[in-house]
Amino acid sequence: MKTNLLTFLVLIFCFLSIKTTVTAGVLQKKPFIVVLDAGHGGHDTGNRGNGFVEKDIALDVTLQVGKILESEPGFKVIYTRKTDVFVILEERGPIANKVDADIFVSLHCDSFTNQAHGFGTFVMGIDKSGKNLNTAKKENEVIFLEENYEERYAGFDPNSPESLIGLTLMQEEYLDQSITLAGLIQSKVVSSLKRNDRSVRSAPFWVLHSSYMPSVLIEMGFLTHNTEGKYLNSKSGRKEMAQEIAKGIIAYKNNISLATSDAQNPTITEEEIKEAIETSEEKIYKGIEFRVQLAASSKKLDEKSYNFKGLKGVDREKEGALYKYYYGKTSDYNEIQLMKTYAQEKGYTSAYVVAFKSEKKVKLSDVLKNEDN
């Protein structure tokens, strides 16, 4: 009886071990899902600067980006369109939600009345100056090409600042990751292709607002610019653009794993965070100092990097019976979000942003609501 019981327990142990190994293998093989969105399509041509066609350029580059990513291990690519068809704006973000995508990337070309030029990336949001609203309005106005748009978009007006500001709420949770993704793409394209740097900026795009993951919109350049338009319409220009955009996405995939990162082997480097900060648009709150709170402890530690997983420039302050440790010090909210991302990647997964005014801690939510800063 004991022998039979022992044999039974061994078999159970072996079964559970095999099951655990298989389960772990399945989890490890979960692909990094990228949804690529070629802007416009079908009867929506996009802008026609210098006679070039935005929808065709966007689709060609998107398919090339996808092909590169699909050749990389661990990637799965899904397209909102692979042919010249019209996809309504309302459906593009939800495609990414349905497949539980890791990131959503929408590709476009810009236009203007003068010879403006350069490569830019956008995340969802409102810059306090409102200077990026025009770009968002142009992309959002494609809803007028849809049947029954008045019912579908429930009174949304692409030309109304109030309507546009209302779009920003859904993406706030993913803002720091979106900025990191946009910064990596921006730096790859600008540095490798020597394009004019229009930075990472925020604007209220309908196509980004409903996606439940880090999302960016790329404006590859201006078709209305005499030289840049020709470059984007050329075979070589599209190929180069696709290669560098893909490299930025690959860098993000390799670098970002906030909740599950191994603190001993962080994948984001300090240099990459600096690159992302340099290419991000500033979001300054005058008179406010943002910091990342790493920890609170009764233990007094020297402010040396070896005590803080390699983070440099950590400050210590005594508050009551506790010592609080802060990383970073800036009035730029976008910069502190990136620094928080880096701190989380280094192992401080519960790190969060705090705000100070005249050296006194103030409520962060109140600071962000106050547009007079």
Rank of each mutant, 00 (worst) to 15 (best):
K329D: 00
V61S: 11
K2N: 12
C14D: 12
E147W: 04
L232K: 14
I268L: 15
I250A: 00
K98P: 08
Q243Y: 04
G320M: 12
T330W: 03
G328I: 00
H117V: 14
E150R: 13
E270C: 09
L133T: 00
I185C: 01
D84P: 03
I179W: 01
L364A: 06
K361V: 10
E141Y: 07
S305Q: 15
F75R: 11
S298P: 11
G221S: 03
E335L: 04
K360Y: 03
A58E: 10
T23D: 05
I249C: 03
E141M: 14
T279P: 07
Q344L: 06
K340N: 13
A203T: 09
Q344Y: 06
K55Q: 10
P266K: 05
N373S: 09
S331T: 05
L107T: 15
E172D: 06
E150W: 04
L107K: 07
D315E: 14
S261D: 05
F290T: 02
E371N: 07
P158C: 05
E303W: 14
F8P: 03
D302V: 04
F156H: 00
R152V: 15
D157G: 06
S280P: 11
R152N: 03
D100Y: 12
I78E: 12
S199H: 13
S297N: 11
T80D: 08
S358Y: 08
K304Y: 10
Q186G: 04
L175Q: 02
L232W: 15
S331R: 06
D127K: 01
V367F: 07
S17A: 15
M124F: 04
L217C: 04
Q177N: 01
I103E: 12
V87W: 09
D37M: 01
V314H: 08
N148S: 14
Y149K: 08
A136R: 03
E146V: 13
K98W: 06
S163T: 02
L59Q: 14
Y342S: 07
E281A: 06
G51D: 14
F308R: 09
V367W: 11
K247P: 04
Y231P: 10
I185Y: 02
A321C: 07
